[in-house]
């Protein structure tokens, strides 16, 4: 299947065109900045850094992170097709995809907890222990995704 994927016209375009691969890499880093950027701010805030920011501010910003994720899912899939057989056997790549998957699931959970905070709590600046714990895991996963992503080129 991955051999076939590499022979598709779109994979051939990405692999052979002079501009397609760097253009996709450019999109991929913009998406990274949005996704990891917004989630880092959220997770660090939930962990007590920059505590002047209301945690509930990140409810509306969650949509923005999803836009970044969409950019990176699409650019990532296109980058993947060009060397599918190599990527699919790369340990750092598989780790990266796993970290991102769990990170996005956690993002949905954390966003839901933030929304509940808005409804339940009069004092919206307090963050419960479970949410803080999830934020710590989430931050670690995004750092892990960056580490694994960079290491794809080295292993």
């Amino acid at each position: 299947m991955f051999v076939w994927l590499e022979t598709t016209p779109i994979a051939q375009l990405v692999a052979l065109s002079l501009w397609a691969y760097p253009a996709l890499l450019s999109l991929h880093i913009i998406g990274l900045a949005i996704v990891v950027g917004i989630f880092s701010m959220r997770d660090l805030r939930l962990l007590g850094i920059a505590h002047g920011v209301e945690p509930t501010a990140f409810i509306s910003l969650g949509k923005l992170a999803w836009i970044g994720f969409t950019i990176n899912a699409l650019s990532g899939i296109l980058l993947f097709t060009s060397q599918a057989t190599i990527f699919i056997t790369s340990i750092p790549f598989l780790l990266k995809i796993s970290f991102i998957t769990v990170g996005m699931v956690l993002a949905v959970i954390i966003q839901a907890r933030l929304s509940n905070l808005l409804v339940d709590d009069g004092y919206i600046n307090s963050v419960d222990r479970t949410t803080r714990f999830l934020a710590a895991i989430s931050m670690s996963l995004w750092i892990g995704a960056i580490i694994a992503g960079r290491l794809i080129a080295y292993f």
Partner: peptide
């Protein structure tokens, strides 16, 4: 460098 750009851009985008 990649984590740094995430902090830099993350805050600035907002």
């Amino acid at each position: 460098h990649f984590f740094g750009l995430s902090l830099l851009l993350g805050g600035l985008i907002i």
